[in-house]
């Protein structure tokens, strides 16, 4: 390839690419706008609904652990054409942390766009080798009795964590439970907590 793309201004390059793709009807402006709309509609609130349902309903929990995509669809989260979704179950003795050291694979269907930190070189380098040091940056400290398992998302699955339900949430309805679940809780850098 003889064109020097690295020296081309990114905004100009994007505008030129859009023009060529539209000219050739490869990707029209309308198609791009529609994908942006659909993608913006996703986000951690979707995954949080699944976690809350799993905390409240043992049958749903079993479904979610067996087949995350079917569990998502059961809550009307669109999964067609998307990678399989695996769910990692935290227990009192086991904590999961998800990373993609090779690129930035992320369970976008249920968590939305990956956050900046998830894509960063520092997160990707450290999560596999120094995960306890990494968690400390989020203020997350695991007791030594808890086994820490890091899941490197390298291939066709996307992974989310089903965290432990925090004490003190007994009797809460699903909406109230979902409201305390953040994206970091479903990747494993943080642990759901009740605001104090």
């Amino acid at each position: 390839m003889s064109m020097n793309l690295t020296e081309t201004d990114s905004d100009r390059l994007l505008a030129a690419l859009r023009a060529v793709l539209a000219d050739k009807a490869i990707a029209t402006g309308a198609e791009i706008t529609e994908r942006i709309r659909v993608t913006d509609a996703g986000g951690p609130a979707q995954g949080a609904r699944m976690v809350a349902r799993a905390w409240a309903d043992p049958t749903y929990r079993a479904l979610m652990l067996a087949d995350g995509a079917r569990a998502a669809e059961a809550l009307d989260i669109p999964m067609r054409g998307l990678p399989p979704l695996g769910v990692l179950e935290d227990t009192p003795g086991l904590h999961h942390l998800v990373v993609c050291t090779l690129c930035s694979c992320y369970p976008r269907a249920v968590l939305g766009y990956p956050p900046f930190w998830y894509k960063s070189a520092a997160y990707r380098a450290r999560a596999v080798r120094d995960p306890r040091g990494l968690l400390a940056e989020w203020g997350t400290v695991l007791p030594d009795t808890v086994k820490l398992r890091v899941v490197d998302s390298t291939a066709d699955y996307r992974w989310m964590v089903l965290p432990l339900r925090p004490a003190g949430t007994e009797g809460w309805d699903e909406a109230r439970l979902a409201a305390i679940v953040r994206d970091g809780d479903m990747i494993g850098v943080t642990i759901p907590a009740i605001a104090t």
Binding site: L14, L21, I32, I36, T101, F116, W117, S120, R124, A125
Partner: peptide, 30 residues
């Protein structure tokens, strides 16, 4: 292929949100 490699193994993680721009969303959508 960044797992465990220096120099990033010693770098702090930037946890700021960094909202996506129109440029970012467009490239993602394409």
């Amino acid at each position: 292929d960044l797992g465990g490699v220096s120099p990033f193994i010693c770098a702090p993680v930037d946890k700021e949100p960094h909202a996506l721009t129109e440029f970012d969303r467009t490239v993602d959508a394409i």
